Simulated assay, not measured.
Amino acid sequence: MSGIEGLGGIPGTVGGALWMNAGAYGHEIGNVTEIVRVAREGRVVEVPGHEVKWDYRHTSFREGELLLGATLRLERDDPEKIGARMLEAKNKRMATQPHGARSAGCFFKNPPGSVIGTGKMIDEMGMKGERRGGAIVSPVHANFIVTDGDNAKAADALALAEEIRERFRREKGIELEYEVELWRAGSQKSNESSKSGESGESLVNETAETQSFDNSTNSTGSIESTDTPDSKDL
């Protein structure tokens, strides 16, 4: 079944992918979502995919809702061709993104309408390898902030991220948006600008961690057939 080959290798859960409209290499999960099962206000409802607003790394799901599963509309295709596309996406990811280093994934969204990705712009500003404490702008892909050693703190990464955002404001007139969400102990998560250096702060990539469930279909991504031959239930 074809339609989400570009998502292969992205760490996370089905719920997280739906929450942020995860995508890569021309594929977004929102493009193939037929139904989302949502725990909303004390009951489980099925929301048609066309009623969801699927934006770039953002959707219309509301804080407090739990995404329990989804039915995806996929196309039949030659398994060898599907495998080749998955391998191509994997090879691109391995060649262009840091592996073996701890990170929260891509830190910033690409600016709306820009033909150049944020990572490329950070690189052109000469910030690859920039360090604050135990946090470093990855020398492999500048939209990743990776950690060095066991003493790196969220405050280090946030200080570095805010420096990048400030330079974008000053030099390019661009207000960079976080692709990660910022979580603070005792407060609601936020993806807005925040003070750096506060204790109890953690960085979370939405795909990987913001929506994890005990339901095994979400945590493992297992697939069960439905009555519709070209749909898959997750």
Rank of each mutant, 00 (worst) to 15 (best):
D148M: 08
M127Y: 10
S216V: 14
A142D: 02
G23H: 05
H27I: 02
L182E: 00
D227M: 14
L234K: 11
A155K: 02
L7R: 10
G200I: 11
F108D: 03
G69R: 00
P139E: 14
T228E: 13
T226W: 09
V140K: 15
H27P: 05
S219L: 14
I223N: 07
E28H: 09
S222W: 06
I174E: 01
P111E: 04
K195E: 14
H141R: 06
L176I: 04
N151T: 14
G200Y: 10
R73M: 07
R37N: 07
K90R: 14
M1K: 11
D227Y: 13
G26D: 06
V47P: 01
G186I: 07
F213T: 15
G119Q: 07
A24Y: 07
S196P: 12
N143I: 05
A70K: 00
D77T: 12
N151H: 12
K172W: 02
S187C: 12
V14I: 15
V115N: 12
W19V: 11
E224M: 11
F61M: 00
G134T: 08
K232F: 11
I136R: 12
A24L: 07
K109S: 03
L203K: 00
E224C: 09
G26F: 03
A142T: 06
I82Y: 04
F107G: 02
I164W: 01
A159Y: 07
I164M: 03
E224K: 15
H141E: 05
G42M: 05
P112K: 08
L66W: 08
R43V: 02
I10C: 05
A101Q: 13
E163R: 12
E41Y: 05
V140M: 10
D78I: 06
S212N: 15
S199W: 12
T71A: 08
E179K: 03
P48F: 01
I35A: 09
D230L: 13
S231R: 15
